[in-house]
Design a protein around this nucleic acid. Structure first.
Lengths: 346, 346
DNA sequence: CTGAAAGCGCTTACAG
DNA sequence: CTGAAAGCGCTTACAG
């Protein structure tokens, strides 16, 4: 019968029932040390543990081994549908390895981020997966240099050896530009993300290069100060107010693209007949917008899973060289892109 | 200077620097026992702790106090945008009280749920907030009876005293029906949620009663087997295939409403001109659908925050009577509802 | 192969 | 008011 007492079954109880010393019971229960004990004895211990419903206390183990089998995950905003799939990938891999995932929202707030990071460290997490990094990020840089295991997802930190897993931002933007050029666009603008993040900066640079490679004007740029709908709308408004309007916009991410759509709606601009729009990320629900958003698909789940695998490796061997993994992306063409106004459909 | 060693500052170090016994240092550092020690001594200890950058090890404390200052949160699917705001509310309240939130996805899988629940118990969480309950739920019922602190959110368990925080499902459906009746609808259908959950059953019953109260046919019901888009579409298809079609549908939640919209699109049914649709939850992004979804707004963040407060109370005093808190909801009218076909607009 | 013992970093009766 | 000691539930050298 299940009862509250079951939770209190201790290693000592198991040892007593199996007629062995707690030390021996510990060795028998732990896979890595099981070979040190006699087969029969091990069986007896395992049986006793089973009968009593023994569950080892990870807290006590952690105190001794100074490992908590726990990983901290820092997310800028869980409300952004981009992150749950990443978290899911992280959790699946970590859980399979016996680790528990601690998720923390920083809310894009540096103070909050610092306090959460410290509180997780105090809780003895074995490592971190961080989605909130900035190009210049003393907090994570110092911690990494001090030997804390950190893997970055999505965003990198400049000039540090912190390992990372990201989508191929550069290729993604190139695909978007190519698609628009193929449709016949020649005035392609970019609503850029914050250049304090590698995603913002890399996508901006990729835009400049790809557009210039096609011999087009690479200066149709409006910077958003954050990856948010509001900032996307503000920047898009400014872009459209200034000079000859573009026939297509590449948004630095899907949240910013949402802001573009808001401005289009306000001003009675039809998308895609008046202007085309491409997003970045292919986050959940953008396929349900009107128009359904053409966007660069980033493998969210895989990014999370890969980051978790990388962290696990590093926890096993701290001396591993820091890899920067880039995962391939592809363009998903939906209904927000078509030929420029005044052109015949191909 | 920050260094890896800082993490290793221990109570003993603080005591040594302050020139006191570790026991005294412990008392000085802990707010509740601080009054037991001389003011000057306490100051010295605090200063020493500050200088050394001491952070108490919650693992060691937990081992001694058998509290982990950690709460487990069980979510059926983090990818459903309904849950992040709830989690946010939980985290904010818990963090302010010094607790860490452990989030776990059950993936709507009973086996996974059991194993996650056990693993969190092994990690000595002090309590649980559970969004995955079924009307008949032996796992949580037994745990609750065994003295585990649990607070349910959104869904209740039948006939048990497990405390809960939910939106007012009954009133929400009544508001939806009233709205449709006001618009002139007389054939109002319900795509019901799984009746194994209290949300599914309560909303179904509320539909029957409200519709009957208005003297309308309360039998236009199609049951979905899960709160998913796919199941919503399947049920809606069946509903439309059977007999005289309704002029309005109330979906048991927004995910199911998404499925309704899918079927409308497939069959060339215009919403709202051919048929009206009301959802439930007002989850993020339903305001961006086409048509923007009229739905019952549930205060997600507050539900989470309230549940966290309730759990905190119960952790302080396990003998507290189990409350079932119901939070008010309201109808948000957007573009998916209007007068039935063939009616003049009011 | 197994037992006895020390210790992880704390807290908390128990003396004094 | 403070020190000395025991103990939370484990793991792991160290003997034997």
């Amino acid at each position: 019968m299940a009862s509250a007492d079951e939770a209190r079954v201790t290693l000592k109880d198991v040892a007593r029932r199996a007629g062995v010393h707690p030390g021996t019971a510990s060795r028998a229960l732990n896979v890595e040390t099981r070979s040190l004990v006699n087969g029969d004895t091990a069986m007896r211990v395992l049986a006793a543990a089973e009968e009593l419903g023994y569950r080892p206390n990870p807290i006590a183990r952690g105190l001794k081994t100074s490992r908590s089998y726990t990983v901290g995950v820092l997310i800028p905003d869980l409300t952004n549908p981009l992150f749950p799939p990443i978290v899911r990938g992280i959790e699946d891999v970590l859980a399979a390895a016996g680790y528990t995932t601690l998720i923390a929202n920083t809310d894009n707030d540096l103070v909050r981020q610092t306090s959460l990071f410290e509180s997780l460290r105090a809780r003895q997490v074995d490592g971190f997966i961080v989605a909130t990094a900035h190009r210049d990020d003393p907090l994570f840089t110092e911690a990494h240099n001090a030997g804390v295991s950190i893997v970055l997802v999505n965003r990198r930190v400049d000039g540090t050896g912190i390992p990372s897993v990201t989508g191929d931002d550069h290729a993604g933007i190139a695909l978007a530009v190519q698609h628009l050029v193929d449709l016949g666009h020649s005035r392609i603008a970019h609503v850029a993300g914050p250049t304090g993040t590698t995603t913002g900066l890399t996508r901006l640079r990729a835009y400049r290069q790809a557009v210039a490679d096609h011999g087009l004007d690479p200066t149709l740029i409006a910077p958003a100060r954050a990856f948010t709908e509001t900032e996307g709308a503000r920047a898009t408004g400014a872009l459209l107010d200034g000079g000859a309007p573009p026939t297509a916009i590449i948004a630095a991410n899907d949240m910013i693209a949402l802001g573009c759509l808001d401005v289009f709606a306000e001003r009675g601009i039809q998308c895609p007949s008046d202007i085309s729009l491409v997003g970045f990320n292919d986050m959940p629900f953008v396929d349900r917008l009107t128009p359904a958003l053409s966007t660069v698909h980033v493998p969210h789940y895989q990014i999370g899973a890969e980051a978790a695998r990388m962290l696990l490796q590093r926890l096993g061997d701290g001396a591993l060289p820091a890899k920067a993994i880039t995962l391939p992306v592809h363009l998903v063409v939906r209904s927000s892109t078509r030929t420029p106004p005044g052109t015949c459909s191909p």
